[in-house]
Computed example of a mutant assay.
Amino acid sequence: MGEVFAGRYELVDPIGGGGAGAVWRAWDRRRGRYVAAKVLRQSDAHSLLRFVREQALRIDHPHVLAPASWAADDDKVLFTMDLVRGGSLSHLIGDYGPLPPRYVCALLDQLLSGLAAVHVEGVVHRDIKPANILLEATGAGQPHLRLSDFGIAMRKGEPRLTDANYIVGTPGYFAPEQMLGAEPDFPADLYAAGLVGLYLLSGKKPDAEAIYKQYSFGTPRAPLGVPEPLWQVIGALLQPDPEARFRTATGARKALAAAVELLPEPGSADDEPVEVFDQIGPLPEGFGPTGPAAAGPEPTVEGTVGFHLAPPAPRSPLSEPPAQPLEQPLAQPLPEPLPLPEQPTAPPSPATRPQTAPVAVRRPGPPARVVIPVLIAAALCFAVGIWALAAA
């Protein structure tokens, strides 16, 4: 039997970790299911404030992996999420290398769908990268993506927890305006999504500095093997000037839907199929239950096998922000875009496997330490008060 946290969550085995905490597979005694539990590794005031912000996010969307509940036990705090078993995009590229364009379109569409839901809540993610984008274990079927790790996310207008001169995020996925000290904003997330799309097509981390230099001579040509219609969308996401990018993730999705209609048909049947395997593995000896009841229901995925984007079903007006036109037209005009499919009505299984922690480019001063465990609860209340005042 593992450690029982707050009388409810039985920690089973570690499945990942990051700079702020370790992620465990845990048995939720109240709900009778396995979840992912992120246990805060540090107990200083700065970490607690970030924890309060992250656990307060409640975004119910099939392509977002947000906290579901939290608990405190003595000097420890944790929050739980769905347990997602298929690893991250980094695992997928490690297994297969460059992915077929239509498969990339399916993944990029789902990422933009999740970002649209995050942005409509006024939240800037600030750490879009392959390791923070998880996959359900769907085998050879349609992939199902979940955007995770909101550890450094913030709502627009909230006070920043770092000095304005510090750049928070992951090197290599910064938007150019972030390097110039601009306030966190949605276009920076869209730029990072473009870099993720390029990573999926090339099988290697993009050279952001080289891309920036290429754009000084205008929009570069499509890389070898990238279809021109798809490159028009990714190229617009990678515009160095945020005013020249898409205004919203929904606008980018519409352009992507039009681009998919212009892609050549998939290659021969001899092409290696892409499969998303279970990366977590079986439960340790002595733990149960096992089988479908433990894993939860099979996730519902959008689209059809073959990675075509299907027509949409009616959706809630609050699910995504209204589509906006591009600030600047694409290099070649796309046909009138078709709306994309309805998202699944129920979120799939759950978890997170962050691999690398975001860093600050400059080293901030050390945060104040909380020397008595009991002060953690006080810090949480104080942080919630600050957050409420800032949001007012």
Rank of each mutant, 00 (worst) to 15 (best):
I234G: 06
V374S: 14
P299D: 07
S148K: 02
I15T: 08
A391E: 15
D271Q: 10
I15E: 00
P62W: 05
L380C: 14
Q142W: 09
A391I: 01
R155G: 12
V118M: 09
I386A: 09
A255S: 13
V371H: 11
S88Q: 06
R53Q: 11
A182E: 07
T290E: 15
A323I: 01
D75P: 03
G97S: 01
R53H: 13
S202K: 10
L49H: 13
L190K: 01
A188L: 02
A71V: 10
A259K: 08
H308V: 13
P14C: 02
P100S: 03
A106R: 01
L57G: 08
A360Q: 11
F246S: 01
G7V: 09
P364C: 06
E10M: 09
P350G: 15
L190Y: 08
G235W: 00
P143S: 10
I280Y: 01
L375Q: 12
E54H: 07
K254F: 15
W70H: 12
L134A: 12
L78F: 10
D241W: 02
R362V: 09
A140D: 10
M81W: 04
P333Q: 12
R253P: 02
D60N: 09
M1I: 12
P284C: 06
S43N: 13
G267L: 00
Q142V: 15
A116G: 10
V35A: 07
A313H: 02
A131K: 07
A192W: 02
L83P: 01
T162R: 04
H144Y: 08
R41H: 11
L201C: 02
R362W: 11
V359W: 06
G267R: 09
R58T: 04
A22N: 00
Q239I: 05
R25N: 14
H308P: 10
G87S: 06
L380G: 13
E243L: 13
